[in-house]
């Protein structure tokens, strides 16, 4: 499976109504698209937000490479990790260019560098730089907005990108399009993408590795093929849907 990008070691998180995660262990491999699925309340978003310290664990540690992120400055840490959220979260008062270059600007990078970087990223996500850099978010379609959201996450060249149900607010056509683009994009940029979704089709389609959670436990981790061919638990069939499994396995 190669090297670990992120590692959860004995992580416990409690929201006051019982433990969401308890002594949780997970290794997220490098340079793969890893989708995290599971029923709502299973801790998948908690898991994601622990990686950039928007949520802090009560116990245990999260390792980034070899580094315990609890020892890192949260602001610096977040600037080194890409983040894409469901509601897109583009700043409405900023142009496309200002939105994309926000993280490099926070880091204090030079202006000339930012212009070139924006153009490069816009090209990467398939939008014509000269046409789009000066536009405002409300002048773009939902699909275009979320492309900009992805470009913004890539701007500071992070090795890890966190995506929290990024395509779920889009219409089905743009969703499928963005899924395809994401797969293609990662063949080029080779990032570790941690992708939380509740859409099983999406999870199986884009993933190199799927992590299926239930009540704060990893039920199975593996390639989509592995999950479908060798489900580790009855719950895997149940959650993914019996119809996805060949008849021979289902009896």
């Amino acid at each position: 499976m190669g090297q670990a990008a992120v590692e959860f070691q004995q992580v416990t998180k409690n929201y006051g109504s019982g433990n969401v995660l308890e002594n949780f262990n997970l290794v997220i491999p490098k340079e793969k698209i890893v989708t995290i699925i599971g029923p709502s309340g299973c801790g998948k978003t908690t898991l994601l937000k622990m990686i950039n310290r928007l949520i802090e664990p009560e116990a245990g540690s999260v390792l980034l490479g070899q580094q315990d992120i609890g020892e890192l400055n949260p602001v610096e840490l977040r600037r080194s990790i890409g983040y894409v959220i469901q509601q897109i979260g583009l700043f409405p008062h900023m142009t496309v260019e200002q939105n994309i270059s926000i993280v490099p600007r926070l880091k204090g990078e030079k202006k000339e560098h930012l212009v070139a970087r924006t153009a490069e990223l816009l090209q990467l996500i398939g939008l014509e730089p000269e046409q789009y850099r000066g536009r405002y978010p409300h002048e773009l379609s939902g699909g275009q907005q979320q492309r900009i959201g992805v470009a913004r996450a890539l701007a500071a060249n992070p090795s890890i990108i966190l995506m929290d149900e990024p395509f779920s607010a889009l219409d089905p056509i743009s969703r499928v399009q963005l899924q395809k683009e994401l797969i293609k994009l990662n063949e080029q940029v080779r990032k570790t993408i941690v992708f939380v979704t509740h859409d099983i089709d999406e999870a199986l389609k884009i993933a190199d590795v799927v992590v299926l959670l239930k009540a704060g436990q990893v039920i199975q981790q593996g390639s989509p093929k592995e999950l479908l061919e060798r489900p580790a638990h009855e719950f895997v069939r149940e959650f993914l849907g019996q119809e996805r499994f060949p008849l021979a396995y289902s009896i």
């Binding site: 950039n52 928007l54 600037r79 979260g89 913004r152």
Partner: peptide, 9 residues
Amino acid sequence: LIEAGKGLG
């Protein structure tokens, strides 16, 4: 937007 800003560092 607050979450995005925070998450971006």
